[in-house]
Design a protein around this nucleic acid. Structure first.
Lengths: 328, 328
DNA sequence: TCCGTTGGTGGAACGCGTTCCATAATATTT
DNA sequence: AAATATTATGGAACGCGTTCCACCAACGGA
């Protein structure tokens, strides 16, 4: 593999001149430009980015940590993040952390090893201290990782309220509510608190089913849906994330009940999955593209030396009416 | 940021000794080991991977190119690839190529720039010549990229046959068949050729609906399903990839017909989506995890200096009976 | 005692592109 | 004509970890 020295020799100029030409910095005469160009072509020269990176102490690579890329919410998030990063010349390293406990720590270590310039994480199993002492560009999606790490999140409280009010308006009296694990503190738990608060205020029965932490696979969702319905069958309303809502709907269909006549469903997230049922799910949609864009924006700010204290970006959610509720 | 020199100075040893200790190569006495360890801890030293990479001319990063990570097939493939790469100490760079035409070329260029050690690509819009002159570790999923680039693929011909026979056994006479774009040559087209061949042999009517190239989004699938049904409504069998099969099923439900009594559906791929309908889809399942594993295996072979001529790995597909066909 | 091993260590050279400084030839001002 | 600015270029030092070679000490065997 030819190096810059070879090019310099062939073009009969100094290495500095070649470098200046490549980077369009400093003076290079038209004449030498041509000579170098020819030499580069002849040697089929491509600059070694590794050497550049070493000098500049940056790689232009951002690590994105998600528990499971297969889960539509994360898939869409990652999709938008990648597109946004691409715009600014960054590449994305994708890290699934579900498989191993120490994967998260290992990926974080890449920051210190100078392999990546920053991290966007939708994952959280390590303690806050671990994150605090890293002191490198990190942005969290829906996680509190200490006061130095900015958080991007949807307005889950509002989301919980909207979902609850929707079911109330639809006349539900016995509602099945699947909540995320409360083992860790996360902004998204707000939707559950708010949902239950509103329901309580209206004197509505809520069956709360707590899901296990970090399980985003369909098998588990199906199991959970079955499990919840085996405990009681007279729910008239359901609130759950998209995939689980789909499984619940299937469960309802199997039990020969009708949606939305007998049971109303409000799903949370609003991924493409929610549009793949008949009827389509009524959803509280997270602004996934904006979440991605804001995450990237914050990360770029961090990488440019800005620092935030207790920064939290909260983006609006939205009701998207489908056919699993009435008059929404 | 402390470097190896600082550690060496603090521990009062040479840089070589520190390096040997870190890499467990060559002799380092117990005594100096301890001194270095203390120095490293005090300086909070982490080796700069960039410098290492420059020397070794490798980064341990593999680029994976897919048109759209949101599509379940690719999501699952990527998921398995990442896990497999992780096993061998590699990191995965994920590249969505749908957004820009030149993204593919740009990502390929990263091989020359030494940013990635290899590429697994499920994408193909550039001409074969471009690939041929790269001469670096590349493995293709379901694409012919020239004789030097090994291909991993499912036995699509068998898949087409199984699907066709299943619909024949189910007594279908008017079958709707969605095919991928024939603009590019790809192993997966085999399933379409074989499907139609078998159908022809049985004298069965096939309505062929050709999909556009590189569109994997739900919106398009829904549109295509509607479009196909608007042209005729008396299909009694459907063959389509998972997501499209789901949309077709919805279309059938909307038209008040029953699955499988009135219309049989066989889906292709067997992603998690196929298990999220009621009834579940009968699918021809690709061995996505094996596709991923084989891709990684081949890539590792290439990176270890092996080279293949016209190598093609063909993995078995499998019928997974759901409720959208009878006696399967 | 001499020689060969094994244990242990320091540091220069290297990988490769970037930047800065020194030098020099023109060109433009006064 | 002298002083200053502009254009142009080469190359050493740098970023940071790795490796190889030179070198020394200690020990066992001949």
């Amino acid at each position: 593999m030819a190096g810059i020295k070879d090019v310099a020799k062939k073009a009969q100029v100094g290495v500095g001149t070649v470098s200046r030409m490549i980077n369009d910095s400093g003076y290079v005469s038209e004449e030498t430009r041509k000579k170098i160009e020819i030499a580069m072509k002849e040697l089929n020269y491509t600059p070694n980015e590794l050497a550049r990176n070493l000098y500049h102490k940056r790689t232009g690579i951002i690590a994105v940590l998600v528990p499971n890329i297969t889960s539509p919410f994360f898939a869409e998030f990652v999709n938008h993040v990648e597109a946004e990063l691409y715009k600014y010349g960054y590449k994305m390293m994708l890290c699934n952390t579900e498989k191993e406990n120490n994967a998260e720590a290992e990926y974080l270590d890449m920051l210190n090893r100078h392999i990546v310039d920053g991290i966007i994480t939708g994952v959280h199993s390590l303690n806050v201290e671990t994150y605090e002492k890293i002191n490198k560009p990190i942005v969290a999606l829906d996680r509190y990782l200490g006061e130095d790490i900015p958080v991007v999140t949807a307005n889950h409280k509002e989301g919980g309220r909207l979902a609850a009010e929707l079911l109330v308006k639809n006349g539900c009296r016995n509602v099945l509510h699947f909540t995320g694990s409360t083992e860790i503190s996360s902004p998204y738990l707000e939707r559950h608190f708010e949902f239950e608060r509103v329901m309580r205020n209206h004197g509505i029965n809520v069956f709360t089913y707590q899901l296990r932490l970090n399980r985003f696979d369909v098998e588990y969702y199906r199991e959970a849906a079955k499990d919840a319905f085996s405990k009681s069958a007279d729910y008239d309303g359901i609130f759950a994330v998209d995939e689980l809502a789909v499984e619940c709907m299937n469960e309802v269909i199997r039990s020969k009940k009708r949606v939305p006549e007998d049971i109303k469903i409000v799903a949370y997230d609003g991924t493409f999955i929610a549009d793949m049922t008949e009827p389509r799910l009524t959803v509280i949609a997270q602004p996934i593209d904006s979440l991605a864009k804001e995450s990237v924006r914050l990360l770029r700010d961090l990488m440019n030396g800005k620092s935030f204290k207790n920064k939290q970006i909260i983006l609006d959610v939205q009701i998207r009416s489908g056919g699993t509720t009435f008059n929404s």
